[in-house]
Structures are given as C-alpha cells and as structure tokens.
Amino acid sequence: MEIDDETLSGVIKRLRRAEGQIRGVIAMLESGRDRTEVVTQLAAASRALDRAGFKIIATGLRQCVVAEQEGEEPTVDVAQLEKLFLSLA
C-alpha cells in the first residue's frame, strides 16, 4: 500500500506526538506523579496511536474506492484492511 506524502507526514506527526507523550509518562512515573495524571497521559498517547493507525487504514480504503471508480481492481486487500481496523477498534 502506498501512502501519499501528505498523509505520511500527518501519520508521522501523530506518532512523534505519541512518542513525546510516552516519554512524558515515563518521566511522570519516575517522579512519582499522581496516577490520575499518568493515566490521562497514557490515554492521550493511546488515542494518538489509534488515530495514526486509522489514518493508514483510511488511506487503503480510499485507494480501493478510487480503483473501483476507475474500473480497476483494487491493489489493497479489503479483508486485510478490515482485520487491521478491527485490531485497532
């Protein structure tokens, strides 16, 4: 599956944000911060990772739709995309 430059840039941005949040969580744990704050940051990192995954899946689905509209066979396996989607849901 090919990912266009704009989408790839957005996914990488989300992943870097999650990376920073996870580093922050580690620092919070090491400094003995309140568990509520730690879990809140973990949830934010988890959402960022999920959004990156959903963006990748959406790109594949979009490629399928475009291929079908142009009368071509999709180069992406829809069943595989469904499994990937369910793994994040």
Results as ranks from 00 to 15, higher is better:
residue 63 Q to A: 14
residue 70 E to G: 09
residue 48 A to N: 03
residue 84 L to A: 13
residue 40 T to H: 14
residue 43 A to G: 00
residue 68 E to F: 01
residue 78 V to Q: 02
residue 78 V to Y: 11
residue 68 E to W: 01
residue 63 Q to L: 12
residue 75 T to I: 12
residue 57 I to T: 07
residue 79 A to K: 07
residue 48 A to H: 02
residue 56 I to F: 05
residue 72 E to G: 09
residue 60 G to E: 05
residue 68 E to Y: 05
residue 82 E to P: 00
residue 47 R to I: 00
residue 60 G to Y: 01
residue 44 A to N: 06
residue 57 I to S: 03
residue 64 C to P: 09
residue 52 A to D: 04
residue 65 V to G: 02
residue 43 A to N: 10
residue 82 E to Y: 13
residue 62 R to D: 13
residue 67 A to C: 10
residue 79 A to R: 10
residue 78 V to T: 12
residue 77 D to K: 12
residue 63 Q to R: 12
residue 67 A to H: 10
residue 60 G to W: 07
residue 68 E to P: 00
residue 83 K to E: 12
residue 47 R to V: 08
residue 70 E to H: 15
residue 80 Q to V: 14
residue 54 F to W: 05
residue 74 P to M: 07
residue 45 A to N: 06
residue 80 Q to K: 15
residue 43 A to I: 03
residue 51 R to D: 11
residue 65 V to Y: 03
residue 49 L to D: 04
residue 54 F to I: 12
residue 42 L to V: 15
residue 60 G to D: 04
residue 60 G to A: 05
residue 50 D to G: 05
residue 48 A to D: 07
residue 66 V to P: 01
residue 47 R to D: 02
residue 47 R to L: 11
residue 79 A to L: 12
residue 71 G to V: 05
residue 83 K to V: 10
residue 84 L to E: 15
residue 81 L to D: 02
residue 67 A to L: 06
residue 59 T to I: 00
residue 58 A to L: 13
residue 53 G to V: 06
residue 42 L to N: 04
residue 76 V to W: 07
residue 80 Q to G: 03
residue 68 E to M: 11
residue 49 L to M: 14
residue 54 F to Y: 07
